[in-house]
Design a protein around this nucleic acid. Structure first.
Length: 665
RNA sequence: GGGCGCGUAGCUCAACCGGAUAGAGCAUCGGAUUUCUAAUCCGACGGUUGCAGGUUCGAUUCCUGCCGCGCUCACCA
């Protein structure tokens, strides 16, 4: 609506500039004037044109406004300031289009792969993982709202050092047999009735300390890692049952937040199906890797790093070994993490020539996102005969924190050097900054802080040290806090229903909190802020939806039905006395544009800010115009339509963020 | 040392590809017909956008140099 009209306007202006002045502008930026009093769109290109045409910007603006002629949907153009052109739309006409609300973009058919969460399956999920999963899930929802076909993957590193650490803990510190470990997973009693991921959280921290005690202890870790990677032994079996149990816990935690997956590829299958061998052959054949013959990397297969001197200067190549090169295969013949990741990404783009086996792993009961329920598939060496196909996509988004930019860039560079420029260009590392704790928060949690840490703005969480806030704990705290608020406000309804409301509010608060910060801002986590339900929060937005709903409930009207009636929009959106109401309509009309921008910049925070703005606009309207006591029936109906539009678009915006509003709060 | 990112109100953060008076929330203070439920609304207070230059009609935004902070760069994953 707003988006469509905007592109029409740009097209028209572009054609006119070409015809009248023979100029072709690459970009015709469109902004919104500071206030609707000045119009709906602002054009700034006259300033740029001033140089080319050797005329004052205002003069050009005046000429254009005088000569451009009528533009569909635009009432008139006006010159403002030193050379802005402001466009005023035909409000009644646009409002009518907003009411009809049918502008879904056509599906493109191509498949997009979004990978997120990817928590090492050796401990409970913490707030850092929540940011990843919420960011990723919201991005998936954005793409789907835009009509794209998306597969959601959660990569499981079930054979890595982190899993090995916990297995070491069970076998060497706790001295448990395989049978005891199996019982530990099926029976909560031996682990003090805490969930298995919680139990391992503490154990993991303990093992890290144990390694520091002696070099022999540290050796155990390496030995364990190799056994697990090799497979077909007791340690590998223990690692498998343990990591699988913890993985289930992670899926349950994320399910609480409305986060679902389609496929869980595991490192164990990347190893057992020998993905690396195929990738290695390609990398050697195309000369991406070379065997280093001298220097500190002697005997390793290495790859030049992107952007280094060695990569673009031939002179450097002759002056000895490139010691800065990235090692892909160690001198002992084992492959590094980046190597495996290259193979995995060749698979993602369908360039490897081999596929995973697939079997069913987890079933989601019917829910608002999947009314018929949903199946999660997991990789397997030999899977079920009937399975959906994953991988072979045209674009990928990896939601991974900023600390892993370097390995990500290595993988992209490898694809590029292999000649897959197209794929490399559609490989997006959706990078975001970490969630850390404020010193105050750390103190509240009972951690002893070093003096130097107390002075910091934030302290990095560390699973290895057991330092952090567990995802389920935070969600529980939010639900409890929301429940107290609901108990105070809604004494007339049943406790069970109050609990459901509290869950909605808690999820809204948490998801919004994780989305309101732009990606490259470090979140310094603090309970006080995260538990807030006022101001710029999810519950604020949810409350606006509830309020709008209340109006219709009291009026005995259905918001969708109102919009199908014959409404006199002219009298409510036109004229400067109605600027505040019109401005709410206009904000509501922008959701499509905001979704586009959020995708283009891979920045879900835009959407969060927008939802808040829309909620704020509605609350303002709510106070200024008392709908149910409006005497003029025609105006009352138009006000109801206004509330219906704001409500509809706000519900839609929140839905893309995975937030739903309860019917009462 | 190289790479990436950050520095904006007391605090936490915004600012669309460079655009009109740099905006929100929190905190503080003052107010809102006991109403479509106040998880709300209105107002006040609060800024040399780290510093110094440059480009531009116009710079929080782009360029250069400093200062400060975070992350990262292993034959760990």
């Amino acid at each position: 609506m707003y988006r469509e009209l905007q592109s029409q306007l740009v097209q028209h202006v572009r054609a006119f500039l070409q015809k009248q002045y023979q100029v072709e502008l690459k970009n015709i930026p469109v902004e919104q004037p500071p206030s609707v009093e000045l119009g709906e769109y602002a054009l700034t290109f006259c300033f740029e044109l001033a140089k080319k045409l050797r005329k004052a910007p205002r003069k050009i603006a005046e000429e254009i406004v005088a000569n451009i002629g009528p533009i569909p949907g635009i009432e008139r153009l006006e010159v403002a300031g030193g050379g802005y052109i402001n466009a005023r739309v035909d409000r009644a006409q646009l409002a009518k289009k907003i009411v009809s609300g049918s502008t879904e973009s056509a599906p493109t058919g191509e498949k997009i792969l979004v990978e997120h969460t990817s928590i090492n399956p050796n401990k409970a999920a913490h707030i850092g993982h929540l940011r990843n999963a919420i960011l990723g899930d919201t991005f998936v929802r954005l793409l789907r709202a835009d009509g794209r076909h998306v597969d959601v993957q959660n990569y499981i590193d079930n054979t890595g050092v982190q899993v090995a650490d916990v297995v070491v803990g069970l076998m060497y510190l706790e001295k448990k047999s395989k049978g005891e470990i199996e019982r530990l997973i099926t029976d909560p009693a031996p682990r003090g009735n805490q969930p298995i991921d919680y139990y391992c959280w503490d154990l993991y921290a303990k093992v890290s300390g144990w390694y520091e005690l002696s070099p022999e202890n540290k050796q155990t870790r390496l030995k364990m890692l190799h056994e697990i990677e090799a497979g077909n032994n007791e340690a590998a079996e223990i690692a498998d049952i343990l990591s699988t149990a913890i993985l289930r816990r992670h899926l349950e935690t994320m399910q609480r937040l409305g986060i679902y997956y389609d496929f869980l590829p595991r490192e164990s299958e990347i190893l057992s199906l020998h993905f690396w061998d195929l990738a290695f052959a390609q990398l050697k054949e195309k000369g991406v890797l070379y065997l280093e013959m001298e220097g500190k990397n002697k005997g390793c297969w290495v790859m030049k790093r992107a952007g280094t001197k060695a990569a673009d200067s031939e002179a450097a190549e002759q002056s000895g070994p490139d010691e800065d090169a990235k090692i892909i295969v160690r001198s002992n013949g084992t492959v590094t993490y980046v190597g495996k990741d290259i193979a995995y990404h060749l698979w993602k783009f369908g360039l490897l020539g081999r596929d995973f086996g697939y079997r069913r792993f987890f079933h989601y009961a019917p829910n608002p996102d999947y009314p018929k329920g949903h199946e999660v598939w997991i990789s397997a060496k030999s899977g079920e005969a009937d399975h959906p196909h994953f991988g072979g996509v045209s674009a990928i988004y990896n939601v991974i924190d900023a600390r892993q930019a370097d390995p990500q860039n290595n993988v992209i560079e490898a694809l590029r050097l292999l000649g897959y420029a197209e794929q490399a260009a559609h490989y997006t590392h959706l990078s975001y900054e970490m969630v850390a704790l404020t010193p105050r928060c750390a103190a509240e949690l009972g951690y002893d802080l070093l003096e130097e840490d107390k002075a910091r703005a934030f302290i990095e969480v560390s699973g290895r040290k057991g330092f952090g806030v567990k995802a389920d704990d935070l969600l529980d705290a939010l639900i409890a806090s929301a429940k107290r608020e609901v108990d105070l406000r809604r004494t007339e309804i049943a406790d069970e229903e109050r609990h459901t409301i509290a869950q909605h509010v808690a999820i809204g608060a948490l998801r919004y909190f994780m989305l309101k910060f732009t990606k490259n801002s470090v979140i310094a986590f603090d309970f006080k802020e995260a538990l807030s339900f006022e101001g710029e929060t999810g519950p604020y937005c949810q409350y606006s939806v509830v309020r709008a709903g209340n109006i219709f409930r009291k009026a005995g009207a259905d918001p969708d039905a109102i919009l199908r009636e014959n409404i006199d929009l002219e009298n409510i959106v036109t004229g400067s006395e109605n600027d505040d109401i019109w401005s709410l309509w206009l904000t509501a009309a922008k959701l499509g544009l905001i979704i586009d921008q959020s995708i283009a910049t891979s920045e879900p925070a835009y959407l969060a800010k927008y939802a808040f703005q829309l909620a704020q606009g509605f609350n303002n309207f709510y106070h200024r115009h008392h709908i149910l006591t409006e005497a003029d029936e025609s105006r009352k109906k138009a006000l109801l339509a206004t509330a219906a539009i704001a409500r509809r678009e706000l519900i839609r915006a929140l839905g893309v963020m995975g937030i739903t509003a309860p019917s009462v709060m």
